[in-house]
Nucleic acid binder design. Structure first.
Length: 211
DNA sequence: TCATTAACACGGG
DNA sequence: CCCGTGTTAATGA
């Protein structure tokens, strides 16, 4: 059973026959905030299409430190899943529900079949690759070339952009985890941003005051 | 110079 | 009382 949400969003992207097939083979799955959707070393058997909510994609080092790679929004899919499906490999990333999330799960076998059968599917998959690759490049650039204050601003701006509100409900510790730094640094940088009238600070929330 | 770690005080829920 | 926040001091890259 497919929701109207799904119809509305993907209608413009996929042709009717493909929509029909998705209807038949896909199934809906929901996650609560904080749920792990895909973990590192998981075998990927389904390809998720994001209907609603936001998913955080992150990487982890040997010591268990997490690093945010990018967020997925409505209409996106996980590029890691795509590579895993093709190579029949394990996930290199962890996907966590940033908000409540609604997904359509597509069995991986359908991936190949549809690549040949539907132009729109092919275009969608390639476009997803392209988009995610650019996001990762952007993140790499940030880490390599930007100081933590710029990275923080970019992080805040991005959060504002995807959540459609200028209030970011995070603790300093959560932000520090995402950017793989310490809370002391985030607290100090946020404080200077506040003095510069770029943000307003409250417990558990940050109001972003630019544009 | 700037980040990290540990430690501490403050205050709201 | 617990947790998030703001700050400092010591240490390191």
């Amino acid at each position: 059973m497919m929701t109207t949400d799904f119809q509305q969003f993907f209608q413009s992207v996929f042709e009717p026959e493909l929509l029909q097939e998705i209807n038949v083979t896909g199934f809906q799955k929901e996650f609560m905030e904080g749920d792990i959707i895909i973990d590192i070393a998981d075998n990927v058997k389904f390809m998720p299409l994001l209907i609603s909510g936001i998913i955080k994609i992150l990487r982890e080092d040997d010591d268990g430190n997490e690093l945010l790679l990018y967020f997925l929004e409505k209409g996106n899919t996980c590029a890691m899943t795509l590579t895993c499906c093709i190579g029949n490999a394990q996930s290199e990333i962890r996907a966590i529900a940033e908000t409540e999330v609604c997904l359509i799960m597509i069995p991986v076998q359908k991936m190949d079949e549809w690549m040949a059968k539907y132009k729109t599917w092919r275009a969608f998959v390639l476009q997803s690759y392209q988009n995610r690759f650019m996001e990762v490049l952007d993140t790499v650039d940030s880490i390599a070339f930007l100081n933590m204050d710029k990275r923080l601003l970019k992080y805040l701006a991005n959060k504002v952009k995807i959540s459609n509100t200028n209030i970011i409900e995070s603790t300093h510790q959560q932000i520090a985890d995402d950017l793989n730094t310490s809370r002391v640094v985030i607290s100090r940088l946020l404080k200077t941003l506040e003095k510069q009238k770029q943000v307003e600070l409250n417990r558990n929330s940050i109001k972003y005051l630019l544009h």
